[in-house]
Write a protein that binds this DNA or RNA. Structure first.
Lengths: 162, 162
DNA sequence: TTATTATGGATATTCGATATCCATAATAAA
DNA sequence: TTTATTATGGATATCGAATATCCATAATAA
């Protein structure tokens, strides 16, 4: 289980845009060259970011992309959600298995009507908790966090110089 | 990004083994039937669990599988690691990109010799943090947690009965 | 000896991730 | 208005991992 390269590209593209801040926007050509990725593929990713309101796009000569929000308001979770989609970290494919029926019967739920829901799966409940933890962390980190980290790294280097 | 079905099968198989505790072991036939999965496929998964010392296997008539440790010592992280492998949650595929070279220069690192390591990628550093959080959570939850949750669910149901 | 059961190799299939090409629309510059 | 530039989105191709099955073999109990 691994985040896709697309997520990697998206995050690096946003970092690049936030880092090399200037008045005009950045074309896909420069962006792709900077990241070492093909323009074709990166443009798909940028389109997704635009559709989700993370970046703005201007077609035509001297067009390109720019951040649609301040870097502090673009969280890692935002990016992951757009690129990776909304699928859950874990899905129980055994909802109607004999095991779940057994557990449901034991706990004495009414036999009529209520099929054992996937939400009743104990394994999934734990995994959903894991997903919540992961997402909370991703929500607490933004593109601005990257800029801060870069600045901090710079500072410590300068201070430690002989 | 999603945990594989194999992880789902593995966790449910372990829950089944821990739940229907008896003196003898459980054959792949019964296990597969309970989970609604093919014996062929499940046996691959069980082999992995055996190689990692999570279950024991006995071939021959009346053979089968049994837990090799108490349920409280089998963590979700153990299972995930065995089934999903050791690959990281995030890999930076841009380590030698122009962006990373720029950031490296800015921070004034020596130009000679030290190529920008993947570990120096700011994006990856955040993602590594996310992975640590996720793994910590998974390590805190065991097969025993599932048994406890089942018992707790049973208790609350019984208490709330009219 | 025989029946049962796990093991592991080989192989097939499916599907999402990755990637590219091209026609089109939109915009700025000339 | 014309032209060049740039983003957009559809179509398509490729690749690899996940999923799944089959079968020969080894190990064990009856």
């Amino acid at each position: 289980m691994q985040y896709s390269k697309s997520t990697d590209y998206a995050l690096h593209a946003l970092l690049h845009m936030a880092h090399t801040r200037r008045r005009d926007n950045i074309g896909i050509k420069e962006l792709a060259a900077s990241l070492g990725v093909s323009e074709s593929y990166l443009s798909k990713i940028m389109s997704k970011l635009r559709q989700d309101g993370i970046v703005r796009a201007v077609p035509g000569a001297n067009g390109g992309y720019e951040l649609a929000k301040p870097p502090g308001r673009i969280t890692f979770l935002d990016v992951v959600r757009v690129i990776e989609g909304r699928q859950r970290l874990f899905e129980c494919s055994n909802a109607n298995s004999r095991q779940h029926r057994m557990l449901a019967e034991e706990s004495g739920s009414e036999p009529a009507g209520d099929l054992p829901d996937s939400d009743e799966c104990l394994v999934k409940q734990v995994m959903d908790g894991a997903e919540r933890h992961l997402h909370q962390y991703l929500q607490e980190h933004t593109i601005q966090s990257l800029l801060d980290a870069a600045a901090s790294r710079e500072r410590s280097r300068t201070a430690g110089r002989k």
